[in-house]
Design a protein around this nucleic acid. Structure first.
Length: 1106
RNA sequence: GGACGAUUAGCUCAGUUGGUUAGAGCAUUUGCUUGACGUGCAAAGGGUCGGAGGUUCGAGUCCUCCAUCGUCCACCA
């Protein structure tokens, strides 16, 4: 017997354990089923569960559970992200500084990495278990971590590939530098913040100024003008500044006076009349006494400040661009530790802000400081630690995303990748169109270390400018020769090996090892080769080999149609296995003969093939060491490559050895020891560089591993819209680059959780909802329902305790419906063989039909990703239809139609459990088990197939239920409102229609129960009572006492009024020629019907006598 | 500065392609209870759908403008 209330804590953990132990989260291995894959956004390994996680887990789990029930090979693949900068910051702050009073330098790089790794592994298991609490039905056997050896290996290799393809470059450019994190950041890793700051005016002397300049200037008012003479200043200053009496100044404004140390020009707008005559002039930079030019640049806003801008190309993005345009010197004056560099003259070594103070002071003393004004402006801050960003020049690795972005844009535009909500399409495309190179190196230790190795000897020759600088970044490299891009520090020769596409002899099942016999590619084979074009486009190979067989050449030629290459090198070592006398035999006959026999008649031994492969590899080693080579060959060669190059086996296991996928690239690397001592680059990759490869690497791609072949490209990428640029854009670009295919077909961007007032949830505001506390209090199902019902793609949603409480109530309601069924039926009976039975009870017919309507609607909503709406419909059906009407009526009729009712109630409840399971997996699974619906668990049951319910269509009686419902609603309302539930008063129902009268009589007990009127009778009309029409033929009649008559009268009058108003509207409509002519038939006829009905009702109401 | 979104009952939100008298939950008021559930049941009050135009036989729904709020992007010294 179920308990009175559902207590989630009692069941949730156990249920999850059972699912997991029974391995029900793993995708079915039935390959005839379609795959449906979601790669989960990996949460940061350092943190704990927050509502954002709960949101995506809920939505993704809904998708996966639904698809699993629909019979897909559903895979929800979990994982965690090492989250470079963030983890390093957390680890430094919380562990090193707080607990041990250490810095990372105390540990050193290796130790730091090791300890940070352990720290992550610990947090990782915490968050993984928290995902279990959320009910995520993900396949834990496939879980991944961005720093797993296999993943890391591929991440580094991708960098190498990009480098080989000319898409990676190193350069010294202006970057966003976070002084706290001590690293470069990409643009999207910075935020903007309004800040109340100050702006200072500084005077820059014009060198050798002439009178005419001064005269022109005097035409301007001091406020907007902008050149002022020293004489304009007060006499005190004049006295101090006697020597400069006749000099002119340009006044610039700045919020960051310290940057003036690096000024190399002052810019004005070329259209600015005020400064036309400054052409060719130079200025003397105060404090530094450096001569700097006046330049003219369109980017200067004439209306802002004085219209003169000091230009510091090395420390400001705008100035940097101006500097590039005008070929200005870039003088670095602020270093990566926020100190003034040795270029800063006497200020060298000072803290940035300290220097600012001193500079202002010195300027004041020199009488060169103008006004100081408060100034509100936007500053850039570090997305992670909120520290103000410094712009400075730094050597970084960049990815030229332009070609990849172009492809991504195409994919989005042509619908290859669909995005929900639609509007995000434009946002994403606009962002991709900006084509800014992506800086991917970060100056932190935690992450994938940049796989670039410098020759130590050369490094020692170059000078390390700054003692504090622990990076080798600033060391100069002469050219490409001086470094090696390598994932291991060894010289790496990459082989991409492709088996030919399907050829004629494959179809004919004929053995062919003689290259003189031409078997061409079939149409399918050509198609297979064509599918490689996208992958090879833009890729560079140092040599391309084919075997002597025409099929490899054809495959190569088609596959490389979009690729630039010189020639195909034919090498007989790559030929297919020789068959000797068995050449041309059918496979059947061939395999009848033993290996030994075959060798005797000229067949080729495995040893011999291996010898050929070895020879070939030696050849490559000799001629293409450190390069990348593409090979088109045969399965025999591929297999033996696998055996020979033990370091990597793309076949994964022996089961797959039977069939090697055709026209699929396999990747191998040959390693050779370098001859010189090498030192690895000290930077690590931007976290998003590895997560950008996530859908590929988690599946073991781009190597043709089983999972990669079975699940890539994935079906759905579900994530928050806030990381669309960070992540979605990068995955599209890198996934396509790595595999030739976009990593997912659909993107669903969920909204972000907000509190009741619509403000973002954050720890600092304290308005966040902790999912774990919430679950503890209300259960996982309640939280999941609150997060999913009423949410839609891209729309932020509000979540608050009352909402969760409401969902908890619903879960309990469902539980009790189950409990009620258990009380009545003990267990449920859903076997399909009863489907042929006639259903006689009208309530049973009605609920069955209603439930199927819901199935149909909800299924469509699921298919269209309207999960919020689907959930709401199920909830409403369960509560307001099944419980409030059906179960209430059932209480009365269950005894008469026990078997039939048991069957129908079971069937409908089964339906409810199935529909609701994706949203509320725990309570539904528990009920499913407790009511013994099936031996299978609910999670593995099949979705309702409407085809099995065709017979329901022919059942009749559901319309009668609609009539009864109406009777109940009308009667109940009057009974409560007018009669004030006076049980003494007599209440009657009356129908002019004989059948209806029988219907009412038959359902009298139900009507009594539903209306709450104990004395309800079916009777002939009594004219002395309050008689209210319900339908055209049915009326309810009440015997009411004197004081209630007035109330009744008001009610009836009100109703008449409303109806009359309504009917006037309809009348107008119907007399409108346009409406009659244009409205669709259905609408028109419906309107007419309603008009008549309403008219009749009014008439009936009007004749009521009180 | 550019782009996008929102504005419907006191609060939080639905309202699919324009077509019956605009819905739900919460909150409010009133009443109900001997067994599925008070984490419940029933009834009631509450909206000229932000404003102004327009298209249409018909607009919460489509178009234009405006207002307010919000978000994202962007180099304003």
């Amino acid at each position: 017997m179920l308990e009175k209330n559902f207590e989630p804590k009692k069941y949730e953990e156990l249920l999850y354990k059972t699912w997991e132990e029974k391995n029900l989260f793993a995708p079915s291995d039935d390959l005839s089923k379609k795959p449906f894959t979601i790669i989960m956004p990996p949460p940061n390994a350092n943190g704990s569960l927050h509502l954002g996680h709960a949101t995506f887990v809920t939505i993704e789990d809904i998708m996966i559970r639904y698809k699993r029930m629909r019979g897909y090979r559903a895979l929800l693949l979990p994982g965690t992200d090492h989250a470079g900068i963030q983890t390093q910051a957390v680890f430094e702050r919380d562990i090193l500084i707080k607990e041990r009073n250490q810095t990372k330098f105390d540990l050193g790089r290796e130790k730091f990495y090791e300890e940070c790794y352990n720290f992550c592994i610990n947090s990782k298991s915490t968050i993984e278990n928290q995902f279990r609490i959320l009910g995520a039905s993900c396949d834990w056997s496939r879980k991944k971590f961005t720093l797993d050896p296999e993943i890391s290996k591929q991440v580094l290799k991708t960098f190498k590939d990009l480098y080989r393809d000319g898409l990676v470059f190193k350069g010294k450019y202006l970057v966003n530098w976070c002084p706290r994190c001590g690293t470069t950041l990409s643009n999207i890793e910075t935020d903007h913040k309004d800040e109340n700051d100050k702006i200072w005016e500084i005077k820059y002397k014009i060198k050798n100024s002439e009178k005419n300049v001064m005269m022109n200037m005097s035409n301007h008012k001091p406020q907007d003008g902008i050149l002022r003479q020293a004489q304009d200043d007060n006499s005190k200053r004049q006295a101090q500044d006697d020597n400069n009496q006749n000099e002119n100044f340009v006044i610039v404004a700045t919020t960051r006076p310290e940057t003036m140390l690096g000024d190399t020009a002052v810019a004005v707008n070329p259209r600015d009349e005020r400064y036309k005559n400054l052409a060719g002039k130079t200025l003397i930079l105060p404090l530094m006494n450096r001569e700097i030019p006046i330049i003219f640049d369109e980017s200067v806003d004439m209306k802002f400040g004085t219209g003169c801008v000091k230009v510091t190309p090395a420390h400001d993005p705008v100035d940097y661009e101006i500097g590039k345009r005008h070929n200005l010197e870039m003088i670095e004056v602020i270093d990566k530790f926020d100190k003034i560099t040795e270029n800063g003259g006497v200020y060298a070594g000072m803290e940035k802000l300290e220097a600012r103070k001193k500079i202002l002071e010195d300027l004041k003393n020199l009488n060169l400081l103008g006004e100081e004004k408060p100034h509100k402006h936007e500053v850039r801050i570090c997305e992670r630690c909120k520290t103000k960003i410094e712009s400075l020049l730094s050597d970084e690795w960049y990815v030229n995303i332009k070609p990849m972005a172009k492809k991504a844009i195409e994919g989005i535009e042509n619908g290859e990748v669909k995005i929900l909500p639609e509007r995000s399409k434009k946002v994403l495309i606009d962002w991709l169109k900006e084509f800014q190179p992506w800086p991917i190196s970060r100056q932190i230790w935690w992450g994938h270390r940049v796989p670039v190795w410098y020759k130590k000897e050369k490094l020692q020759n170059s000078k390390n400018e700054n003692q504090n600088e622990i990076s080798i970044k600033n060391m100069k490299m002469k050219d490409d020769e001086d470094f090696l891009v390598s994932t291991t520090g060894k010289i790496e020769t990459d082989l991409v090996v492709v088996r030919h596409g399907e050829a004629e002899h494959n179809v004919l099942k004929i053995k062919n090892g003689d290259p003189k016999i031409d078997y061409h590619l079939t149409e399918i084979g050509k198609k297979q080769a064509e599918n490689l074009q996208e992958f090879f486009e833009g890729k560079h190979f140092d040599a391309i080999f084919v075997s002597e067989h025409i099929r490899t050449r054809e495959t190569a030629e088609i596959a490389l149609k979009k690729t630039k290459y010189e020639k195909l090198i034919v090498d007989e070592l790559l030929n297919d296995k020789k068959n000797g006398e068995l050449e041309g035999f059918s496979e059947n006959e061939y395999y009848k003969i033993s290996e030994n026999e075959r060798l005797k008649i000229g067949g080729e031994s495995i040893e011999n093939i291996q010898k050929r492969v070895k020879l070939f590899i030696e050849k490559i080693r000799k001629n293409y060491k450190g390069k990348r080579v593409l090979i088109f060959t045969h399965s025999a060669i591929l297999r033996n490559l696998n055996i020979l190059l033990e370091h990597y086996d793309p076949l994964n296991n022996e089961n797959s050895s039977g069939k090697l996928p055709k026209a699929t690239p396999y990747f191998y690397t040959l390693f050779d020891e370098p001859t010189e001592e090498l030192v690895q680059d000290e930077d690590t990759f931007d976290t998003w560089f590895s997560s950008g490869q996530w859908p590929v690497t988690t599946l073991g791609g781009p190597n043709p591993s089983e999972d990669f072949l079975n699940f890539y490209p994935t079906d759905m990428m579900e994530t928050g819209w806030d990381i669309i640029f960070f992540w979605v854009a990068r995955m599209l670009m890198l996934g396509k680059y790595m595999t030739g295919k976009f990593p997912f077909k659909n993107v669903y961007l969920h909204g972000l959780a907000r509190d009741k007032n619509g403000t973002k949830m954050s720890k600092s505001k304290g308005n966040g909802i902790d999912p774990l506390i919430t679950i503890e209090k209300y259960g996982t199902d309640a939280l999941r329902l609150a997060l999913s019902i009423g949410s839609s793609a891209g729309e932020d949603f509000r979540i608050y305790e009352e909402k969760i409480e409401g969902m908890r109530n619903f879960v309990n309601k469902l539980w009790n419906a189950g409990r009620f069924l258990e009380i009545n039926f003990n267990n449920l009976e859903v076997s399909n063989n009863k489907s042929q039975n006639k259903i006689e009870n009208i309530w049973n017919v009605w609920i069955l039909k209603k439930s199927l309507e819901v199935v149909s609607e909800v299924t469509e909503d699921f298919e269209n990703h309207r999960y919020g709406i689907a959930g709401e419909k199920i909830k409403n059906f369960t509560w307001n239809v099944f419980c409030d009407w059906y179960l209430e009526a059932m209480k009365i009729f269950v005894k008469e139609n026990f078997n039939e009712t048991k069957f129908v109630a079971s069937k409908v409840f089964e339906t409810i459990l199935k529909l609701l399971h994706p949203f509320a997996p725990f309570v539904t699974e528990q009920l499913w088990g407790d009511l013994k619906i099936s031996d299978k668990m609910l999670i593995e049951s099949e979705w309702i197939d409407l085809k099995n319910f065709g017979w329901v269509k022919n059942l009749i009686g559901d319309e009668d239920v609609e009539i009864l419902k109406k009777v109940v609603e009308e009667t109940r309302s009057i009974f409560v409102d007018i009669l004030e539930r006076d049980d003494e008063a007599k209440s009657f129902l009356f129908s002019e229609n004989k059948n209806e009268k029988i219907l009412l009589e038959k359902n009298l007990e139900i009507l009594k129960n539903l209306t709450g009127i104990k004395n309800l009778e079916i009777s002939d009309s009594k004219t002395f009572s309050l008689k209210t029409p319900i339908t055209n033929t049915i009326s309810a009649e009440f015997e009411i006492s004197g004081e209630k008559k007035e109330k009744a009268k008001i009610r009836v009058e009100k109703e008449i009024q409303a109806l009359e108003k309504y009917i006037t509207g309809i009348d107008e409509k119907l007399s409108n020629k346009g409406f009659v002519a244009n409205a669709p038939k259905e609408i028109l006829e419906n309107t007419k019907k309603i008009f008549e009905k309403s008219k009749q009702k009014i008439a009936k109401l009007k004749i009521i006598k009180f």
